[in-house]
């Protein structure tokens, strides 16, 4: 069965690697800032939130590493990353990307539930990863599970913004809405243009997140 992870136009390849590195750095910055706040307040919620972003950062780093590694094998024209008979290193990078991204999102969802039940985290993580890894169409299932988790986060941040009318939460809400949109583009990637659009929307999401973080840290 053919499983394309994404279809990249050659002209966009270098941009996409730079973007993935940027996504990794932005999510890492959120994680590190969260850890700094955790050191002050010692709140487990903040620690878990930071851990979630750290895992997402690792996933983007894996994705960037994969793309950098295969850059040398890039043929002219369009590149299709596939899981059909790929080298072991590519498979490891793709699994790292998928597992850490889903684990990061599940950790964020668990954090927003504001409960202290390790069993719940175990179940959420187990179900999400089992669904993805055991699926025949693993990459499509990965995107659908990610979409499902991101949609929940949008719902959560909408409620937070709606009840508190907090402008700061509005930025985070906007970032997650854009991540949902970009995931929709990735699910329906059947041409190079949808991949590029998905990536650009994703870039918008992480730039919003970065601006929000810089404002929080009062860095101008």
């Amino acid at each position: 069965m053919h499983q394309a992870l994404y279809i990249i136009p050659e002209w966009f390849f270098d941009f996409s690697v730079v973007m993935e590195i940027l996504f990794s750095l932005v999510t890492l910055a959120v994680a590190v800032s969260g850890m700094a706040v955790y050191k002050i307040i010692k709140d487990k919620k903040i620690w878990r939130f930071s851990l979630g972003f750290l895992m997402i950062s690792i996933s983007y780093a894996a994705w960037a590493a994969l793309n950098t590694h295969i850059a040398s094998t890039l043929d002219k024209g369009i590149l299709m990353i596939s899981l059909t008979n790929p080298p072991l290193m590519h498979v490891l990078a793709v699994y790292t990307y998928i597992i850490f991204f889903i684990a990061g999102l599940v950790t964020l969802v668990y954090t927003t539930l504001k409960v202290e039940r390790g069993e719940l985290l175990y179940l959420l993580l187990g179900l999400a990863l089992t669904a993805v890894v055991s699926s025949v169409s693993m990459l499509v299932t990965f995107r659908i599970v990610a979409l499902f988790l991101l949609t929940y986060l949008v719902y959560y941040y909408f409620n937070e913004w709606y009840t508190a009318k907090n402008k700061r939460t509005c930025w985070t809400l906007a970032a997650f809405i854009l991540l949902v949109l970009s995931n929709l583009f990735f699910i329906f990637t059947d041409s190079t243009s949808t991949f590029v659009l998905g990536h650009i929307i994703e870039l918008g999401a992480y730039l919003i997140l970065l601006v929000s973080l810089l404002r929080t840290l009062r860095i101008k």
Binding site: G34, V37, I40, I41, I46, S212
Partner: peptide, 19 residues
Amino acid sequence: VRYLSQYALVSDFTSSFGL
């Protein structure tokens, strides 16, 4: 005392990310 001096940062971070 450190918490009080850095309360604004903690408060802004937690409200930004719904924590």
